[in-house]
Design a protein around this nucleic acid. Structure first.
Lengths: 366, 366
DNA sequence: TTGAAAGCGCTAACAT
DNA sequence: ATGTTAGCGCTTTCAA
C-alpha cells in the first residue's frame, strides 16, 4: 500500500565497500569510532554510500546518542494563538532558522490541544525532544515547575511570571510603552488614551504595559485622567477567552473615548495591534478621521499593521530574533558536540529592545 | 549543565514489580507480546510504572516498530509563506488536529530554508517521518517525482500540476470564481474587473482562477473586455518573488481601473485577499468609497478579511479541513494499527468546495 | 502465566 | 588500519 523505499543500512554500505560497519559509520556519519581510515577506504565507502543513497537512521542514532536533535515549540491552546497567527509564526521562523543552522528538527507540541502540561512533559519523558520553547505562558500555567523538574532545557519567550528558574527571552514592555508615549508626545499630544485588556485572564505582559503607561504619563507630566485608561471599569464586564477579544476591546474603547466629548484624547495607544486596529476602524465608521481627528497606535508590529488603511504606527517586538536566541540557547546546551561550550548554571534572561515603526495612523497634533 | 531527569526504562519498572521486561512491555505499552498476564501482575506493573513515571522511549520504539508516528509539513521557501502567514497556519491547524487524534507528532520541514528537495527526501530516508504534507508546491518543484520515488506517503494541498501520482487535497478554484462572479452579478454588477497575478512565477491555482474568470464572464454574458483583466500587460513588467507582490499587484490594479474613467468596472474580483485589500486601500486613498462607488472582493477568506475596514467579502478556502483530510490520509496509511484498513492503490484527489462569505466590501449596484 | 533472548541500526570501546 | 562486539530501549517469538 504505502511504499517507502527500503532504506540501506550501514550493513549494506559495508558489504558493497568490502569493510566493516564500524568503518562505514566512521566515514559516513563522522562518528568518533575508527578515526584512522585510509584515504582509499574513505573514498570507496563514500562512493558506496552515495550510490545507495545511505542516510543514518534517525531513531537508531537517537537511541545511541541519547539526543534527538529535535526541539519542541509550544503555544497555549487559546483560540487566537497557533502558528496561523502572525505573532507565533514570526517567532517560529526564528526558531526554525537556528534549527537549520545546527541541523536540528522542530516539533510542534500540542498546537491547539488539550492536556498541554502532559504533552509537554511527555515529549521530554519519551526523549522525543531535547529542548522546548514555550510561547505565551504565564503563571496560570501552574505546571511550569513540574515541567522544569523533568528538564531544565526549557526557555520561555515573553514570560514575566514568578517562576524564576525559567530561562526566558523577554521583550522590554516598559521601554516599548515609553517609546510609544514619547512618539505621541513629540507629535504634540498631551492627552493620550490607553486601551488595556479586558480579558478574563490578563497576560502579565499586558498588565505591565498598562502599569508602564500610567507611570510614563505621570513622569512626563501628560494628562493624567482615569477616563483615559480604558479597561474593565468602562466595559462593565470581563471578556471570555472564546470571544474575539481584541476586537471587542478596541471597539468598546472607541465608543468610550468618543463618548468623552471634548474630554476625549487626541491620541490613543493600545496594548496591542489588533485592538488598535479595531478601535481605529470603529472610529472611522463613526466618521472620525485617522490621523487627522485622532491618532492611534499599537504595540508588537504585527503584519496586520502594514495591511490596514491607514497603516498603523506600532512598536516592533523582535520575535524572530527572540525565537532564534531561544532555540540557539537550547541547542547549545543539548547538542553533544557543543555541550562543553555552554554557559554556567545561572538562569538566562535576555531582554530585547523595542523599535518604533512610524506609519500613517499617527501625525502631529493640529 | 542541562538536567533532564533520568527517565526510567522497562528494566526499572520490571525490577520494581518483580517481573520481566517482556511483561512490563505488554502491560504498559499495550504491546502484543505476552498477551496473558494475570490481573494481579497487571496491577503491580501499572502501579510501578505510574510511580516511576514511565513512558516508552520514542526512538527505541520507532526503531523496533519501523514507524516514527510523525508527519512532516513542508512549505516552499518563498518570502511570503511560512507558518507566520494565515494561509499556511490555517492548514497546519487541521493537520495538527488529525495528529492529536491519532497520537502522531508533527515536524516542520525546512520552513524557510534552502535545499528543500533534499530536506524532504532526507526526512524519509532517515525514517524521521512516516508521511509528508506538501503545501503550495507546483511543477516548478521538479523534484516531486524523485520524492515520490522514495515514499508514496506524500499528499499535496492545493496542487494542480502535472505529477498525477501525487495524492492531493484540492480547492475548487473554478467554483470559487464562479461563486464570486455570481455574487457580484446578483448585486447587479455587469462590468466586473479581475486582478490576476503579475508574479514572475505564477502558481497554477492563480492561473486557473484567471481562466475561470474569463470563462464565467463569457458564460454569464457579462461585460467581456480585455481592459477589465489586470495582469502583466498593464503592469508592463513582471514582479520578482522578493517584492511585496500582492500589495504591488493590488495597488497597480487600482490605478489601472481608475484610469479607465467611465469604462471602469463597478466591481472588482481579486485572485486573492491580499491583493484585493491592497486595491481597496489604494482606491480609498484616492477618495473612492467602497462599496458605494466600487465593490471589491477577494478569494481564500484569509483572517485579514475580517480585520480591514470595510471588511472584505471573500470565498472561503477550507484549509483546516483540507489539512485534516491530508493528515488523516497519511496516518491511516502508515499507522501499524490501521494499515490494513487503508484503501487501494489509486491516487486520491479530494476536492473541497468554496463558500461565499459576504461582508461589507460588496453591495448592490446603485 | 511468565521469562529469556534475538534483533531493530547505530556508535565506540576494544581487539586484532 | 580495520574488525568484533556490547549495548542504547523496545517488541515479540519461543521456551519454560
Amino acid at each position: 500500500m504505502v511504499r517507502t523505499r527500503n532504506r540501506p543500512t550501514l550493513k549494506d554500505v559495508a558489504k558493497l565497500s568490502n569493510c566493516s560497519i564500524a568503518v562505514v559509520s566512521t566515514v559516513v556519519n563522522n562518528a568518533k569510532g575508527n578515526t584512522l581510515v585510509s584515504d582509499e577506504m574513505r573514498q570507496r565507502v563514500n562512493q558506496a554510500a552515495q550510490h545507495l543513497g545511505y542516510r543514518a537512521h534517525f531513531a537508531s542514532r537517537t537511541l545511541k546518542e541519547k539526543c534527538s536533535r529535535t526541539l519542541g515549540v509550544y503555544f497555549p491552546p487559546v483560540p487566537w494563538a497557533g502558528a496561523g497567527y502572525g505573532y507565533e509564526g514570526a517567532m517560529i521562523r526564528g526558531v526554525e532558522k537556528a534549527c537549520r543552522e545546527f541541523n536540528y528538527d522542530l516539533l510542534l507540541v500540542n498546537m491547539a490541544g488539550d492536556n498541554d502540561a502532559q504533552s509537554c512533559m511527555d515529549k521530554f519523558a519519551e526523549s522525543r525532544i531535547d529542548g522546548l520553547v514555550l510561547m505565551n505562558v504565564d503563571d496560570q500555567h501552574d505546571w511550569l515547575p513540574r515541567l522544569l523538574d523533568i528538564s531544565s532545557n526549557v526557555v520561555a519567550v515573553d514570560y514575566s511570571g514568578r517562576v524564576d528558574q525559567l530561562h526566558a527571552m523577554l521583550f522590554d514592555n516598559r521601554a516599548a510603552v515609553r517609546q510609544a508615549v514619547e512618539h505621541l508626545a513629540a507629535l504634540g499630544h498631551r492627552r493620550i488614551g490607553f486601551i488595556s485588556s479586558c480579558k478574563a485572564r490578563v497576560h502579565q505582559d499586558t498588565f505591565e504595559r498598562k502599569l508602564a503607561f500610567i507611570d510614563t504619563v505621570k513622569q512626563m507630566g501628560l494628562d493624567d485622567d482615569d477616563q483615559l485608561i480604558f479597561d474593565t471599569r468602562f466595559l462593565g464586564r470581563v471578556i471570555e477567552p472564546d470571544e474575539e477579544c481584541c476586537m471587542v476591546e478596541g471597539q468598546q474603547a472607541a465608543d468610550h473615548f468618543l463618548s468623552l466629548g471634548d474630554q476625549r484624547p487626541t491620541a490613543i495607544l493600545a496594548y496591542n495591534d489588533l485592538s488598535a486596529v479595531a478601535c481605529m476602524h470603529r472610529m472611522m465608521a463613526q466618521g472620525v478621521r485617522v490621523p487627522n481627528d485622532i491618532c492611534i497606535m499599537g504595540i508588537d508590529d504585527a503584519e496586520l499593521c502594514q495591511r490596514v488603511y491607514p497603516t498603523l504606527t506600532s512598536i516592533s517586538h523582535p520575535l524572530p530574533e527572540m525565537g532564534y536566541a531561544a532555540a540557539s540557547f537550547l541547542i547549545k546546551r543539548s547538542a553533544p558536540e557543543l555541550r562543553k561550550t555552554s554557559q554556567g548554571n545561572q538562569v538566562v534572561r535576555q531582554i530585547f529592545a523595542p523599535t518604533l515603526i512610524p506609519r500613517q495612523s499617527t501625525a502631529a497634533l493640529r
